[in-house]
Design a protein around this nucleic acid. Structure first.
Lengths: 190, 190
DNA sequence: GGAAAAGCGGGGACTGTCTCCGTTTAGTGC
DNA sequence: GCACTAAACGGAGACAGTCCCCGCTTTTCC
């Protein structure tokens, strides 16, 4: 993936500025922040923004890859600290909280775990799927997770539960509750 | 809620035309269909559209209330045909399918079950919540549904699961699967 | 039939996306 | 240093969408 020729100095500078501006704007205004406005913040023309990041999703991904990778790494930390089943739940929780807090990230993760997600999103998608797969496998080996669950199903359900919790406006409290309901099921507690 | 004075004939006519055009447009192009375009289809000016339906959600609601009420009624039909637990699952399934099929309906139902949904949406919201409450109560009485589940939680989780299934692009097949996972829980089958 | 109320509608301000192309600039070889 | 070239810039402008305003038309009611 290395550029055949390194980026020109001004291009590099603008790229970085755009990324910084985007992170800021997405955090403040959510995933629909105006792209022209981001260009303005970065002090570049909109043409420059669109050349570096042809779609909104591309920019979103570039702005959040490191966070996503951190979440992937976090999965492994949790796997060391906790028994597999708990590690998995806790990871889903942290993932959900991050999704809710970092307002731009929802669309990104959503399309990353969608069927037929664009090739541009492979980075985030594979990071997530890898982390999920490791946790799922461990929990299944331990016997605390149903054996027929696919990692990507877990991610999608996690996304769904996060969506449910967003509807409640409750910044995390509902998320825990809904995750419990998902893991335990809706049948009476046994 | 009756108008103090009945609608003027031309107003009534335009209102109906707008509704028909909106239903068509939302079905074809999803919830983000252009409002000006809907006005054009109906053969009225955009001012007229905005006077009758001040927000997109208002139009969406007006276009779908009857479908929503039908879904509410369907809950009671199912309650008669099936044991409470199954009726509930089946209803969630039909609700999800409708949400996915009628492309404009997702946003509507989403805000209807969100905390602090606008006053304008009370009609759809209460219809849904009523239907859910009846099913929940019956299933809890039967003992096939955990006693601490609130109806609105069920609706939100249903919405979340539908979202999860949309990510899979699978038009219904995944929805059944994800609903099963929700009701049975992620623990190994007992 | 005529006055007042109700309603119409499209022009226009505004915001956002995205492209095109003339201009500028960094890098390179001399 | 200097000139040259390919890369990169940037902002004007085409387009699409939302939404409001207000002069004009239609309906209603007496």
């Amino acid at each position: 993936m290395a550029q055949s020729r390194p980026m020109r100095a001004d291009a590099r500078r603008n790229y970085d500025r755009l990324l910084a501006a985007a992170t800021e704007a997405f955090a403040e205004q959510g995933e629909n922040a105006s792209l022209d406005d981001i260009a303005k913040r970065a002090g570049v023309g909109s043409g420059t923004l669109y050349r570096h990041f042809p779609t909104r999703l591309a920019l979103l991904e570039a702005a959040y890859v490191d966070r996503i990778e951190a979440l992937g790494a976090r999965a492994d930390e949790l796997a060391e600290e906790l028994p597999p089943g708990e590690a998995l739940t806790e990871w889903l929780y942290e993932l959900g909280v991050a999704t809710i807090r970092m307002r731009g990230m929802k669309a990104l993760l959503g399309s990353a775990v969608a069927d037929g997600s664009s090739a541009a999103l492979t980075a985030c998608g594979t990071a997530m799927k890898g982390a999920a797969a490791r946790l799922v496998e461990a929990a299944q080996a331990e016997g605390t997770l149903r054996a027929d669950l696919e990692p990507v199903e877990l991610l999608r359900l996690g996304h769904g539960v996060t969506t449910a919790s967003e509807l409640a406006n409750g910044q995390g409290r509902e998320l825990r509750r809904y995750l419990t309901l998902l893991t335990e099921g809706l049948r009476p507690a046994g």
